[in-house]
């Protein structure tokens, strides 16, 4: 019993790892690596957001605020004050967690659209501060961020490294690093979902009233998952800043928040692997649609609309439902 349970949880993780291992065979040039690396970082962020949206059922329209805070904290701490990258990343995450905890308590009492509104306001306030504190953040024109560095060892997308005697390029090293980060992020999320906390969360999603009646401290759990998803965003924001080498307040913008939530909904709310697919699709679309030029925006809107109309549960849940239905049919036919 326990064995099977472990299996089901690990199967998805194994498949994801396998895809990440095979993928480089199909990546033609450094740009492709960069794109996939970004996808992995963004995907890890939405895996965190999905804990809040998909499992606790709370909509955040301001998550880019936490992402941006993490990015800027890393950028400023390492760039302006010369901190090493890892402490900057961790202190940034602790700070963001604290902020999320402080604002989370009052706003998580809100319901539905009012909660969305409050998260939107928090996100906006963060973006406005980043935009206006020019002395610290460089203002709207942004700031450069130094390469990621661990114990004096620099991870630059432009460097060359040797790994276990294998010569690899900087962009490949980043790809490996981001893949590992994504796997860890997913592993942690899956464990959380299956833990007692996760079960409590899902009960909150189902019906908050019912949950509190049977004795679940809904406020505590909502607040906890809000903080966890903010930590995800902060850490990934920091990595994103190091990887990009340059950040502007756009990383904390409302548009970016909307993009995150769209990834979650498009990929499939509540499906950890679904939201990864959502991130991949939405990162890939602008690149694929770039050739449509003038019609790029039209196409993007149309695809988003049609997907959501015909797959309201999201890409992955819908696709798996179709696949399993076919399989069952096939199995039935053979029998």
């Amino acid at each position: 019993m326990l064995n099977r349970f472990m299996q089901s949880r690990l199967r998805g993780l194994m498949i994801l790892a396998l895809i990440l291992i095979i993928l480089p065979a199909f990546l033609g040039n450094p740009f492709h690596y960069e794109l996939v690396t970004q996808m992995a970082i963004i995907a890890a962020t939405v895996v965190g957001l999905n804990l809040l949206v998909g499992f606790a059922g709370q909509i955040s329209l301001g998550h880019a605020g936490f992402f941006g805070l993490g990015a800027y904290f890393s950028g400023i701490a390492t760039g302006t004050y010369g901190w090493p990258s890892v402490p900057a990343l961790l202190v940034g995450a602790i700070l963001v967690a604290l902020i999320a905890w402080i604002v989370g308590r009052p706003i998580l009492r809100l319901k539905g659209h009012y909660l969305s509104m409050a998260t939107l306001a928090v996100g906006f306030i963060i973006a406005i501060i980043l935009n206006n504190e020019r002395a610290l953040t460089g203002g709207p024109d942004g700031m450069p961020v130094p390469a990621f560095e661990v114990f004096g060892w620099e991870l630059s997308a432009f460097g060359r490294y040797s790994l276990f005697g294998l010569e690899i390029e900087g962009f490949q090293a980043w790809y490996i690093f981001a893949s590992v980060v994504l796997l860890v992020a997913v592993w942690f999320a899956l464990n959380l979902i299956e833990s007692p906390i996760g079960r409590a969360l899902r009960s909150v999603h189902g019906s908050e009233v019912a949950a509190s009646v049977v004795g679940v401290n809904t406020a505590k759990y909502k607040s906890l998952v809000f903080v966890i998803s903010a930590i995800y965003a902060s850490l990934m924001g920091g990595l994103y800043a190091h990887f990009q080498g340059f950040i502007t307040p756009a990383v904390a913008s409302f548009e970016f928040s909307i993009l995150f939530i769209t990834m979650v909904v498009l990929g499939g709310m509540g499906s950890t692997f679904g939201v990864i697919l959502g991130a991949v699709v939405l990162k890939l679309l602008p690149q694929v649609l770039a050739d449509f030029q003038e019609l790029e925006t039209v196409m993007f809107g149309l695809i988003l609309m049609l997907t959501m109309i015909f797959m309201p549960k999201g890409l992955l849940p819908t696709l798996t439902a179709i696949v399993s239905k076919r399989m069952r049919k096939k199995a039935g036919g053979e029998a």
Binding site: N29, F31, E34, L35, A250
Partner: peptide, 16 residues
């Protein structure tokens, strides 16, 4: 008008 996309497209121009 988005700096991150500008960076990505610049990367595509030089690397791809």
């Amino acid at each position: 008008g988005n700096a991150s996309s500008a960076r990505n497209f610049a990367s595509r121009l030089v690397r791809s």
